[in-house]
Structure formats: C-alpha cells, structure tokens
C-alpha cells in the first residue's frame, strides 16, 4: 500500500470530563478504500472521525493526512478539512438557504472571504455544485429549501455538499441512522458508488452490521476506545460481533 490517506499513531483522546474516548488507536485507510467502523454507542467511532479531520484535537498521538500531521497547527487542520468531506447523522444542512447554496457551502474553505460575504459564487463553482447535485440525482430540487425535502433527500444534498469540496476522503458519521432501512440503502448506495467511481476513500460509522458487511472493503470494530477487530467483512463472525457488542448481539 502506498502512503495511506489517513493514518493514526497511538491516538488517544480524553474528554474534559475524564471520558477516555480513544485509547492508543492505530488506524489507516488507503486511497479509494471504503472502511466501515462499527461498535457500540460511546465506543469512540464519532470521536475518531472528528479527530481525523481536526474538529477535535487528540490528547496524545498523531493523525497523518497523506503523511503530514493534521494537528500541527489550527490553520493546517483547516487546510486538511478542505480536502476531507464529511456527512452527519443529522445532515447539518443550513436552513433557509436553497439546496444549491447548501451544496456550494462545501466550497467555503476555498472561497475568498469577500466573495463568501456576499454568497457570490463563480459560474464554475455553480457548475461544480449542480454537477454534484446531478450525481446524487436531486438536481430538480435545487431551488428548494432543505426543510422541504425528505430525510433521504437531505442526506443526498449533504453528500453533494461534500462532493463539491472535491475531497480525497469522505467521512460519514452515522450517515443513515436517522433514515428508514429502505432509504438508508438508497443513500448509502449513492455515497459508496460515487466514492468508488471517483476514487474517494470513505470512512463510515455504521450502526447496522448488515450495511457494514454489504458496502465496505474492510471493517474496523471499536470497543471502549480500542480497535477490537480489523479485517474484511467475511471475517466478521458471530464470535467477533459478540466480543464487540456484548452478549445481547444474538438478538439481531
């Protein structure tokens, strides 16, 4: 494997209230790889994603983006975030502005402040946004406001916003947890298909083991802030799942 897109070295994060969310996590993702991260709530999945793109600063250890440390300075963490798309469980769309503007907000990192001030986007940027909307097949809704869309459509807009950044990696923090199973599949289909076509690496926190098995090249399971399992979905046996989720895993 060439230089991994993201690599963490003995990553530790302890929250101010004393919760140890990550304990010496070593984790890597190669270019174009689709990785599913599973684990119980509070196992450190979301914390890991936020450490990767510098939204959270680790207490110990390092995150490398294409071989360079993410957390060296705040400005550098910002530069990294430009190249890393992220989608969220609750979509994080900006209310009261159009779908297209929401997608173009993906360019916020690259935009000069004076243009951002007036929501002024160049025709090229608009084309980029419209193309991203076309990729997730929601182009006909471009003038609507996010509140007028269904949950699945909103998450597709969020995917388009991340695409608009032309990212190297897409981080997905429980992208389909607030959607019904059918819609979840549709949305995840879009995200994974586009990532594979564009060669974008993807790290997705998933609550559903079935979806993780189906979509990912590799599964990483977290337990109490540590990596409990790492390997292809085929190796994800019932014993492993029992280890990760505890005795009650048999219920699903």
């Amino acid at each position: 494997m060439a230089t991994p897109v993201f690599q963490t070295v003995k990553l530790c994060l302890t929250y101010p209230d004393g919760t140890q969310a990550l304990r010496e996590v070593d984790f890597a993702i190669g270019a174009g790889e689709v990785v599913a991260v599973i684990g119980k709530s509070g196992a450190g999945k979301s914390t890991l994603l936020r450490c990767l793109n510098g939204l959270l600063t680790p207490t110990k250890g390092e995150v490398l983006f294409r071989g360079r440390p993410v957390h060296s300075t705040k400005a550098h963490a910002r530069m990294v975030r430009r190249d890393v798309g992220m989608i969220f469980q609750n979509f994080g769309l900006v209310p009261r502005v159009s779908v297209l503007t929401n997608v173009l907000i993906g360019r916020a990192g690259q935009l000069p402040t004076w243009r951002g001030l007036f929501f002024w986007f160049t025709p090229e940027e608009r084309q980029l946004g419209l193309r991203a909307l076309q990729r997730v097949e929601i182009l006909d809704q471009w003038q609507k406001r996010p509140a007028d869309l269904s949950g699945g459509q909103q998450q597709r807009v969020a995917i388009a916003r991340a695409l608009c950044q032309e990212p190297a990696v897409l981080l997905a923090d429980e992208p389909v947890s607030s959607l019904d199973p059918a819609t979840a599949r549709v949305v995840l289909d879009y995200a994974v298909r586009i990532c594979r076509e564009e060669g974008i690496a993807m790290v997705a926190n998933l609550h559903s083991v079935a979806l993780a098995r189906e979509y990912s090249d590799r599964v990483v399971a977290f337990k109490d802030g540590r990596v409990a399992f790492e390997g292809p979905p085929t190796q994800l046996t019932d014993e492993v799942l029992k280890e990760v989720y505890g005795e009650h895993f048999a219920d699903f």
Binding site: I105, A108, G109, A158, Q165
Partner: peptide, 19 residues
C-alpha cells in the same frame, strides 16, 4: 449541526459564522 458541517469543509471562523 450546520455549524459543525460548515466547519468540516475547512471554512474559516468568519465563514462558519456567516454560513
């Protein structure tokens, strides 16, 4: 939620507030 999402695009503090 939107604040975190805009932050994740690598926007500056000003742009995070503005967008």
């Amino acid at each position: 939620a939107p604040i975190e999402a805009v932050k994740a695009t690598g926007a500056s503090n000003f742009m995070v507030v503005w967008y």
